[in-house]
Every structure is written in structure tokens, then in C-alpha cells.
Amino acid sequence: MHLRIFTEPQQGATYDDILAVAQASERLGFDAFFRSDHYLAMGDEPGLPGPTDAWTTLAGLARETSRIKLGTLVSSVTYRYPGILAIQVAQVDQMSGGRAELGLGTGWFAREHEAYGIPFPEKRFGLLEEQLEIVTGLFGTAVGETYSFEGEHYRLVDSPALPKPVQAALPIIVGGSGKARTPAMAARFATEFNIPFPEIADIRPQFERVRAACEAIGRDADSMVYSVAVTTAVGADEAEFRLRAAAIGRDPEELRKSGLGGTASEAIDRIGELADLGAERLYLQVLDLSDLDHLEFIASEIAPHFS
């Protein structure tokens, strides 16, 4: 089981705040540092000092870390044209020495699009499908050859398909709870399928749908990585756990039910349960970026049980 740190900087974080968490995550042995790709805080938080762009941030982190993998969970297709996205991701992969990963989705937060003048079409699944085809097509085109694409939403003509990522097969993450189109698209394009913040009972059936979609196109279902994102607040005892839950505005019992909440022993049991349901990788959503002791606790008291 790989444990990854996943953050939501739009809720209020400077680049230096993000850097501190990323470097702590690397030092403590976590597999990856991921961040959301949003431009507006959610809920009642003002999100001061304001949003940070995901791929600009990751470019900075690429030069200020050395081992940890870096990615988005997930970038929205509404933010960037696919050709520009491919350039950005390939450049971060080069800057990091081959540590970039791309999570890509349809986007859902209409209000942030309104706030920053970003078009938000009602139907976006077709955009996602074409962007995945274009990005993987650009990455997969041999140097010296060109790539063209004609779709409903995008048209590329004789692209040099440059620059190239360092990684021969840069990891692509697709996820969600859709029962048909999402598993089918993941089977075609993704190296990893992620279920974000699921009900426990929904995990195994969704993984089984993805496995079936892989088999339907002749792909080995075991070639897909299966992952889950869970909101995380844990502590050495009940009091510390409840303090951390309060700090992020979450109900302790709801965290125990649907997230990763409680004491170390409770968290270890929950991770074991998620592994039994088919999860091979966990994204631990940590919302208080000032609480580096939280990361220390997870690394020392929980992670060693799954190394």
C-alpha cells in the first residue's frame, strides 16, 4: 500500500506553505505529494492569500524536492487546452527528473469558473475524452514525427508533439463514480483509477467495473493501479484526534465512518479494510497545512505497518 499526501491549497496557502508540506512529505518517506487544481476556496473560508496555480506550483516543487512524485488530483479540462497542458506536464516531468503524474477530470466547481471568467460548458465528458486522447497521443508520438487530431472539441494539425516527458509512460490518473463511461475511459487511457472520498460499500463494485472495462478491450486488469482518496485526521489519542477534526471543520464520527479518522490503531484497521477492498494506493487528504506534526505522526505510527 502506497501512502500519498494530498492537499487543497485553494483553502488558504502560500507557495511556502505548500513547499513545507511537500518537503516534509518527502523527508518522511511518503510516496507522493499531490495537490488539488482549484482557483477558489470552498465553503466559508476566504482562502487567503488567494489561489496558487497547480502546475506553476508543481514546477517550483520539482526543483525543490528530489525523490517524491508530484501531481494533481485532479486538473480540470476546462482550465487548459490539451496541447498546452501536455507542454506544462512534460516540462514539470523534465524539471523533476521524471516524477510528474497527471490526474485529469471534467471539473465540477461552477462558481470558481464564474469568479475567474473560465467557460464552464454543461457537458464536459467529451472534452475529457478528447483531452486524454490528445495528451497521450502527443506524449506517444515519436520524436521527428508529427501528431494530428480532429475531434468535436479540438483540432491539432501536424504538431511536433514536443517537449517529451522524461518518463516513457507518464502516469495518467482518471477517477470518479460513473458506472459505465468513466470505467471505459479509464481502461483506454489511464494507468491509475481513483475513487475520491467514497462510501466504503461503493469501493469494490467500482473497482470491479474498471476491471471489467479493461478486460472488455483486452487489457490486463492488473495493469491498472487502483486508489482511493480519503480525508484524514488522526491522533495519538481521542483528544488529539478530535482537535485535528475540529481544526478542519469535520465531524469526528463522519471521519471515522467515511474517511481515515481516529487513533493510529483505528487508521491501521481502516487502511487494511481498504486494501481488502482492492485499494493499492491511498491519497491522504490533509487539510491543515500548518500541522506538520500530523504528517510526522502518520509517518511514524501508521505508515510502517504498510511499508
Rank of each mutant, 00 (worst) to 15 (best):
P9K: 05
Q10Y: 12
A13F: 02
D17L: 03
L19N: 09
L19Q: 12
A20C: 03
V21Y: 00
A22Y: 10
L28R: 03
D31N: 05
R35W: 01
H38W: 00
L40E: 10
M42F: 05
D44N: 15
E45T: 14
A54M: 00
A59W: 07
I68F: 00
R80I: 05
Y81H: 15
I84S: 08
Q88Y: 04
Q88L: 09
V89T: 15
V89K: 07
Q91N: 09
Q94A: 05
R99K: 08
R99E: 00
L102M: 12
G107P: 02
H113Y: 10
H113D: 11
I118F: 11
P119M: 10
F125E: 06
G126H: 10
L128I: 06
G137D: 08
E145R: 09
T146Q: 07
E152H: 11
S159M: 03
A161I: 14
K164L: 08
P165A: 02
A168Y: 03
S177Q: 07
R181N: 08
T182H: 12
T182S: 11
R188G: 14
T191W: 03
A201E: 14
F207T: 14
F207A: 15
A213M: 09
I217Y: 13
A233K: 10
G235P: 13
A236H: 10
D237Y: 15
F241Q: 14
R242S: 01
A245T: 13
A246G: 11
A246Y: 02
A247H: 08
P252S: 07
E253T: 15
S258N: 08
G261C: 13
E266G: 01
I271D: 02
L282K: 05
V286N: 02
D288C: 11
D293L: 10
I298G: 10
H305L: 03
